[in-house]
Design a protein around this nucleic acid. Structure first.
Lengths: 255, 255
DNA sequence: ACAAAAGTGTTCTTTCTACACCCATGG
DNA sequence: CCATGGGTGTAGAAAGAACACTTTTGT
């Protein structure tokens, strides 16, 4: 079976078993060193990138579909995953241009499939080191890109990433969602670098320390992170139980 | 043409010209005296109520479709209208039960129309006095209901209203969206009552005055509101221009 | 021993909260 | 003239912002 036949079979199948005209796109944020990254796929045989996405099976919850897409690309389960916007403009992007850049575009031929596609955006926050990015059969490569240095993107995916970024910046001020982007054990300076990456501005170390500890959801371990030059920082863990309690009480604001 | 035939024709038409399987529901908030209200329709021949909703024409932007629905029910244009959530659970409500209560449910017969419907929620904030609620041919009545005293609702519309309410409560803390719920000229106590209705708790008059005036987006008129007993309060107007500027700068938080 | 990051407190400023009295109006 | 809601300021508490030096570690 040639690649083109494979693609056609795949989309015929989607047309049949999925909700027509509705797709979902996942903006998967990862964090490494001081950089906030997004997971992207390179469209087969091109230098064009796009967000991991998928379709919703006819009797499947949209949230479940998003979890499925995420699992397929990252191998991770039970991720922090949140719907953030429906992209429903009549003309979301220049279709001719996108098809040209894709070389082999998605072959939706079915009459049941509408001309235009509406898309739900989800964002996920993951610990980048736990992820082995996996390309699908429509892409040659799956990798992390710094949010400030994105490659050429297909569709309206640049716009979708912008909206997702704006969303997590606001969210970060209300709840410490950033904790999902770090490994189980982390240091305060690592957490601070994460906040700085998401918010896009430097923070004062002393004030940061006070505020984040004031939330009462971090526990200091006896261990320290060694191996690097300089003073070794303490490791902390996230207190899931207290976090849940604080979420309900609503006292997790961080500005 | 009997009502049943009319209904069938209508839904045949929708199946043909609209995006299949996707609907939209509008939570239209109005404010009057001290009460925050929602506009509801009474399903023809029943005592069951539901949100005004509609479908998206195949080449229509979802935002435009929401504006259209809103215009049809309220006669208003250029409303404050915002998408807030996609309701995409595989089972959103007990269908058998809803059909029974509806007596004559929406007759989607077409093969192109999926079994389950996904719905986008929009909320609108309107000046209740500018609105003449209009029922459509599927409903006997269109009227305002206090958010704390809702009647029996069809589908998952109670849940949709709850999510909308939670959303505007959060939004209100970040931008003075409440101004859309009042007439052009209003008094500070009226505005305070609106905030109290949305937030669901009393506010201190002096602190409220300070904070709201601190935003620098209200202009005091020379007129006062007379006609009622007691001291006549000043009228204020909303400074659109400064509001736009403040929105961009992000200094409109109100907690 | 040196360079570089970690850790830690205090002061000042701003914002938030609580609280009470006189005034104007229509009835 | 009375009842009722409108209008206004201040003091104390809490939270936010600015700021510098010592400690630790690997090289």
């Amino acid at each position: 079976m040639t690649y083109k036949e494979q693609l056609t079979t795949h989309f015929n199948n989607i047309s049949e078993v999925c909700v027509p005209g509705l797709s979902l796109d996942c903006v998967i944020f990862g964090f490494h060193e001081t950089r906030l990254n997004v997971l992207l796929l390179r469209w087969k045989g091109t230098d064009e990138w796009c967000l991991p996405g998928g379709f919703i099976v006819k009797d499947e919850s949209v949230d479940v579909a998003a979890g499925r897409v995420l699992h397929e690309r990252t191998g991770l389960d039970r991720l922090f995953l949140q719907q953030f916007h429906l992209f429903g403009d009549a003309v979301r992007y220049d279709r001719e241009d996108t098809w040209r850049r894709q070389k082999m575009p998605m072959p939706f031929g079915s009459a049941a499939w509408p001309e235009r596609t509406i898309s739900v955006g989800y964002y996920a926050l993951v610990d980048q080191l736990k992820v082995t990015p996996m390309a699908d059969f429509m892409s040659d490569e799956c990798s992390w890109w710094e949010v400030n240095e994105l490659p050429s993107l297909l569709y309206d995916h640049k716009h979708i990433i912008d909206v997702a970024l704006r969303t997590i910046r606001v969210q970060l001020s209300w709840q410490p969602i950033g904790l999902n982007l770090l490994p189980e054990k982390f240091t305060i300076p690592e957490l601070q670098r994460l906040y700085e990456a998401v918010l896009g501005r430097p923070l004062d170390a002393r004030n940061f320390h006070k505020k984040i500890m004031g939330l009462n959801i971090l526990i200091r371990m006896d261990e320290r992170r060694t191996g690097k030059a300089h003073k070794s920082p303490y490791l902390y863990q996230f207190d899931q139980e207290r976090y849940q309690r604080a979420l309900i009480n609503g006292d997790l604001s961080f500005v």
